[in-house]
């Protein structure tokens, strides 16, 4: 590994070439004026900024080709700021490039490594000082110090304990119970089978008990999608078929992959598609995954109707909804 085969020796820095402004006083003057004009443009930009802030109404719009209808206030402020900043920037760079010295300077570089003598002296003094502290000898002190520092280090971790509750079984539970009515979202109206035409989709939530309030945490587990097909279109086993009602089938709307809302339904193919990662579920086959990264079908909610003819859940979900987790069985 050497450079001995290099055909030529380093010719050294090329001769300095003067710029026009270095030799021609007219060019120098012109460069100076250009810099001044750029700084002047910057000042104009700030004036535009101040004017926009004070005098352009925040609700006024202008039509700009390509951009369309644009808020004049924000546009004025932004353009003013941009002009002000760019003027200073281009002015300074132009100044440096045309008028300041462009002679390259050579500085020496030294190896990062310290001199051997310095290194040796350093080691000697560290050893000396360690000797003074008796670190090598007093192992009892060393060990107890290690123990106490280690223990103190644990306390802040302990303090984080109240960041959250223990999960417990909460991930397996939803608000769906036997007989819980399905209500529209939004609107909270109970649904009769006749409300849903063949081919229709609806998002539903469990009916609230009086005085109960629905949180986003509830929706994140309870959201259910209803799809109505013709009964003969299903390819389900007897149990799953008994979970449908007159062609209406209900799935958890929370994707079994990463928990997005499975919101896209394609009527012709009867596929549900999650817009986040394109997992595709076949409604006719109990939301079997037919494409994409999801590994499990969407959980199916068993439904029927109550005495008044409204759709209700036959039973809670028989598995956890949403994305997988370690303890999920």
């Amino acid at each position: 590994m050497s450079n001995e085969l290099a055909p030529l020796s380093d010719p050294g820095l090329p001769a300095h070439v003067h710029r026009k402004a270095d030799t021609d006083p007219v060019a120098e003057k012109r460069a100076e004026q250009q810099v001044a004009v750029l700084f002047g443009i910057s000042a104009f930009g700030t004036l535009l900024f101040i004017y926009s802030y004070l005098f352009i109404d925040t609700k006024s719009f202008v039509f700009i080709p390509v951009m369309g209808n644009t808020n004049a206030h924000q546009l004025g402020l932004g353009m003013g700021l941009a002009i002000a900043l760019l003027g200073i920037g281009f002015g300074a760079v132009h100044w440096a490039k045309t008028l300041m010295s462009d002679t390259e300077v050579i500085a020496e570089r030294h190896e990062m490594r310290s001199e051997d003598s310095d290194r040796d002296a350093f080691v000697v003094s560290v050893k000396e000082r360690a000797e003074v502290a008796g670190l090598g000898r007093r192992s009892l002190i060393k060990r107890t110090l290690g123990l106490s520092v280690g223990l103190v280090g644990i306390s802040p971790i302990l303090l984080l304990g109240d960041l959250g509750p223990m999960p417990g079984k909460s991930l397996e539970e939803t608000s769906w119970r036997k007989g819980t009515r399905l209500v529209t979202d939004p609107g909270d109206r109970p649904i009769k089978p006749a409300d849903l035409e063949v081919g229709a989709v609806a998002q539903v939530l469990p009916e609230l008990r009086p005085g109960q309030k629905r949180t986003l945490n509830d929706i994140a587990k309870d959201a259910v999608l209803l799809v109505r097909l013709r009964t003969e279109e299903f390819q389900l086993d007897a149990e799953r078929l008994s979970w449908t009602y007159q062609g209406i089938i209900a799935f958890s709307k929370i994707c079994s992959h990463m928990g997005c809302a499975v919101a896209l339904y394609e009527q012709t193919t009867k596929h549900l598609l999650c817009p986040c990662h394109q997992s595709t579920f076949d409604v006719t086959r109990a939301a079997k995954v037919i494409f994409g990264p999801s590994a499990r079908p969407l959980p199916q909610l068993a439904i029927t109707v109550d005495a008044e003819g409204f759709l209700v859940a036959q039973q809670p979900f028989n598995e956890a909804v949403g994305p997988s987790y370690w303890e999920r069985s």
């Binding site: 941009a82 002009i83 900043l85 200073i88 100044w95």
Partner: peptide, 20 residues
């Protein structure tokens, strides 16, 4: 001058993007 000026250019371009 070059580096300082360049800061203003970067800020200016960002402002231009923010405005338009």
């Amino acid at each position: 001058a070059k580096a300082g000026g360049f800061f203003f250019i970067v800020f200016g371009v960002t402002a231009l993007l923010g405005a338009t």
